[in-house]
Simulated assay, not measured.
Amino acid sequence: MTYNSFLKRLFIVLKTKWLLNLIKGRVFSFASFDMINNLYKIESNLTTIIDVGANKGQFQKAANYFYPSANIYSFEPIPELFEGLVKVSNNNITNYNFALGNEKGELDFQKNKYFHISSFLDISKKNTDYPKNDVEIIKVQIRTLDDMHEELNIHGKTLLKLDVQGFEVEALKGAVNTLKKIDYIIVESNFEELYKNQPSYTELNAFLNLHNFEMRTMLDFNMGKDGNYIEADFLYKKR
């Protein structure tokens, strides 16, 4: 763990109830708990949460703690992670073992040994922060959120969370009609070229502005080996 990572985690422990929950036997991801804690201060009443790129369920678990009555729909294409995701779910959570993109079909997906950096995109040669080995190519089914919206009970205040390692704009392009029902979006964006052909923050921001969303605040960030910000999670709110 880097010195900056240690300070970040210490800051989260001091400013949130993360440690109190740990004492009570509730273990949460540092980043997800802090992110949802910050969101809750802005919006305490969410009815629907769509978690795209759910990983092992870190965000899902924290979201279910802060919003216990919300319907949560989680999407995770990696089979090993999906199995763990199902284990931490309860009755108000529905999980899907496929990815969301701009069109229905199947694509090669780079499953990294470090699951959290797996992506449809190649890791950039300019990227010095992510390991480039131990990659397995798997086939992943893709659907669009617009294609699925009738299957999802989207109602009330709704959050869409996207953490799909450079594929965020593609997922949003497949959700332009569903975005009309969305009130908040949490989306990860990169400041450095972590993946080949990844959209820039400027492109992502322009797309969301075009669809009537404005950046509200930054909820979380990651720093690289040189101490620079390499990526961050932003909260967007519908105008």
Rank of each mutant, 00 (worst) to 15 (best):
N205M: 07
E168G: 06
N190E: 14
I185T: 01
K180C: 05
A171K: 01
N197D: 15
Q198W: 09
I186E: 02
V169R: 14
S200H: 08
K161E: 12
D183S: 13
L204A: 00
E168F: 08
Q198H: 10
L160E: 05
E203N: 05
N205F: 10
Y184W: 12
P199W: 08
K180Y: 02
V187M: 11
K173H: 09
V164Q: 00
Q165G: 01
N177P: 00
E168V: 09
D183V: 00
E170Q: 15
T202P: 06
E188Q: 09
N190V: 02
K173G: 08
E170I: 00
L208A: 09
P199R: 02
L194Y: 08
F167D: 06
N177L: 03
L179G: 04
K181A: 09
T202I: 13
A175S: 15
G166T: 09
A171R: 07
V169W: 05
N177Q: 14
E188N: 08
N205G: 00
F167H: 15
E193C: 02
P199T: 05
I185Y: 06
N197A: 12
Q198V: 09
L160Y: 02
K196V: 14
G166P: 09
V176F: 09
S200R: 01
L162N: 06
L159K: 02
K196I: 07
N177A: 10
E188P: 07
E192A: 08
T178K: 01
I185Q: 10
F207S: 01
N177G: 06
L179M: 14
L179Q: 08
S200P: 05
L172S: 09
A175P: 09
E192Y: 08
Y201Q: 09
V164F: 01
Y195C: 02
L160F: 10
